[in-house]
Design a protein around this nucleic acid. Structure first.
Lengths: 174, 174
DNA sequence: ATCAGTCTATCTATCGATAGATAGAATACG
DNA sequence: CGTATTCTATCTATCGATAGATAGACTGAT
């Protein structure tokens, strides 16, 4: 038996990889089916075969990103652990948080895409606030502040093209 | 005499207003000369008359934004004052920080535009760090952290479509 | 008469999306 | 078994719309 029957084909996963890379670099408006197709070595019509529309592709990419992010945070016990996960996303790929990019242009995104960006932050703020005791205004405030600092630090580090900026901006988070 | 001879014409200013609004909503890739032209009631060729290229227009808008921002911060004496300026930009116009949007897509921006985004953050981090004593690693770290939190909070508030998120995320900044 | 500002008209390039064809693998049937 | 059918993935070709940009004519104020 081949690897346990996957929901999506290998080619579809390659397409999502390319789309994620492009979106995290240039934003939703900044990628095209033709570019993605060229990245994976097919024609744009083949990309449409796997993902009918641009919003559908972007939403699928965002959903997978959120899933992976939550998996990586599964064992996070402190703000420092969260910082490490964000740091890895920035340094390892040299790129912004996917949902941070989408959030920045959220004023003009197809509904299905902005919904995924919203979902990312809603769920992560909830998870983060659980580290700070029972649900309360105080724990939510702390979670929002930390999430804002992490996302802003990624954006600053990318804009100033210096990963050290992330480390400096996120010292003493908790 | 019309209002004291301005460097740029009134129409050029209108064009920059429209461009700023569009960029803050949709990002650099998300606005076009035709849209801007329609916004101010001219043809796209007239926009080209005032600003030869798209990068030139975006860079001019970013430069003006930085100038105005620094003017508004002229009398800022505390992190709380900074917070108020960012808050006004978010609530009054219901939009992201222009340079926050540009920063998010800074991986694929014309050089003259990403240079303006970089300039915004470089100058503001310097100014902010002056509030925290003589130049030092510590004052710079604090400035970077506060700037990251303010920008991230704007993005979160916009994505979650709730201005209160900004207030919660930026409580106890200093 | 000059000159800034606007217009019409047009160019080339690219966009997202669709149609129709084809090759090959998988599946179902007799 | 072998044959017929269906599915998957890709291709070529094309659609209408829109992108940024340019050339040249017109208008109106100084």
């Amino acid at each position: 038996m081949p690897p346990p029957t996957t929901a999506i084909s290998e080619k579809a996963a390659e397409i999502m990889d390319a789309a994620e890379r492009r979106i995290r670099t240039s934003g939703y408006q900044g990628f095209s089916f033709r570019e993605i197709a060229a990245d994976v070595g097919v024609k744009s019509s083949s990309v449409h075969h796997h993902f009918p529309t641009k919003p559908a592709l972007a939403a699928a990419v965002a959903r997978r990103y959120t899933d992976r992010f939550e998996a990586a945070l599964d064992k996070a016990k402190s703000a420092e652990d969260w910082r490490a996960v964000f740091r890895k996303a920035l340094v390892q790929h040299g790129q912004m948080c996917l949902c941070g990019v989408l959030g920045a242009e959220s004023g003009d995104l197809p509904p299905e895409v902005s919904a995924e960006a919203r979902r990312f932050f809603t769920r992560n703020v909830q998870a983060l606030s659980r580290l700070y005791g029972s649900p309360s205004a105080a724990s939510r405030q702390t979670a929002l502040r930390i999430m804002a600092t992490l996302e802003g630090a990624m954006m600053l580090a990318r804009t100033l093209d210096d990963p050290k900026v992330f480390d400096e901006a996120t010292r003493n988070l908790g």
